[in-house]
Amino acid sequence: MSSNKLWQCITCGFLYSESEGIPDEGIPAGTKWEDVPDDWCCPDCGMDKSDFTMVEAGTSALGF
């Protein structure tokens, strides 16, 4: 299994998990951060992708 990375919005705290993606927003599970479109913005506060910072690598989801 490839390592999962978590990216966090510095404004609102929203987390993006590469292993989970955001299927509701058309970002399939397993989408690497660099493959998230540049014009994508935080779903909770609307800030740009550039406002995210990597917080952790290797955390896996609990799988609900």
Binding site: L6, Q8, G13, F14, L15, S17, E20, T59, A61, L62, F64
Partner: peptide, 26 residues
């Protein structure tokens, strides 16, 4: 604790009953 929020959000959306172990995991 944004991680808790991320997991909780998935569990809320799934609408499944959680057992004690899953609750403790979160």
């Amino acid at each position: 604790n944004p991680k808790l929020l991320m997991q909780a959000q998935a569990a809320i959306k799934a609408q499944i009953s959680l057992n004690d172990e899953q609750i403790q995991q979160i």
